[in-house]
């Protein structure tokens, strides 16, 4: 009798986990933005982890525990990478009306940036070139604005140069003002030492010029 109950419980649990994975698949297909798809992938991953854990518990084996650890880490890294990418790609489009993130056409990213805001013309041009490269799928952002390469040197220099930022800290993003650039420029992810996304906000920093001859060559 208890064996029957046990079997029913196991089957019910498996069905539920499988159903949740399939429903999440629907969101992956349908999700209007890449973030929706990322969240749904996380749910699929969690279902797989629960299923794996259940399998381990009920077939009395523990050799798959490292797989759980690896899956957890993969889920985390995937989420963070996608969200950083989204922040970066969307930080180049000013204004509230932006096309869907699911189609990346470089023409979307050449919206004329009204230069009356907090950026000089040179910086704007440098930024748009960098975005063009990203749009073409060139993942190497080393030839972005010159602020990018400076991040490689001492973090102390970075923390002193950052007027509006505190010293690098543990955990959260701690820009001094939340989402300062209302035109959607976005400060992107945490302003850590090698965070290239900070360039769009720290362009005006005075001590980050002419350190990268490559970037200088790209600037008009």
């Amino acid at each position: 009798m208890s064996s029957l109950v046990f079997d029913i419980l196991v089957v019910a649990g498996s069905v539920l986990l499988g159903t949740s994975a399939i429903i999440a698949l629907y969101r992956i297909v349908r999700g209007p933005s890449i973030l929706d798809r990322m969240i749904a992938t996380d749910v699929v991953l969690a279902s797989i982890m629960c299923g794996l854990g259940g399998f381990m518990a009920l077939s009395h084996r523990t050799d798959l525990l490292p797989v759980l650890i690896v899956l957890a880490m993969l889920g985390f890294v995937g989420s963070v990478s996608v969200s950083r990418y989204v922040s970066k790609s969307d930080s180049m489009t000013p204004g509230a009306e932006v096309g869907a993130l699911s189609d990346f056409s470089s023409s979307d990213w050449h919206m004329p940036k009204d230069a009356e805001d907090d950026s000089t013309d040179a910086e704007t041009a440098a930024e748009s070139e960098w975005f063009e490269d990203v749009a073409r799928g060139i993942s190497d952002v080393a030839d972005g604005p010159e602020a990018v390469t400076v991040r490689d040197e001492a973090e102390d220099g970075h923390s002193e140069a950052e007027d509006g930022h505190d010293a690098p800290e543990v955990g959260l993003d701690v820009g001094s003002d939340p989402d300062v650039d209302g035109e959607g420029e976005g400060t992107g992810p945490d302003p850590g030492p090698e965070d290239s996304d900070d360039s769009s906000r720290t362009g005006p920093e005075p001590d980050q010029t002419d350190l990268d001859p490559g970037a200088e060559g790209k600037r008009p």
């Binding site: 505190d166 959260l172 993003d173 001094s176």
Partner: peptide
């Protein structure tokens, strides 16, 4: 869900 924070003022959003 924590969305943003203002470190200088000690505010969580």
């Amino acid at each position: 869900i924590i969305i943003d924070s203002d470190r200088a003022l000690g505010v969580l959003y």
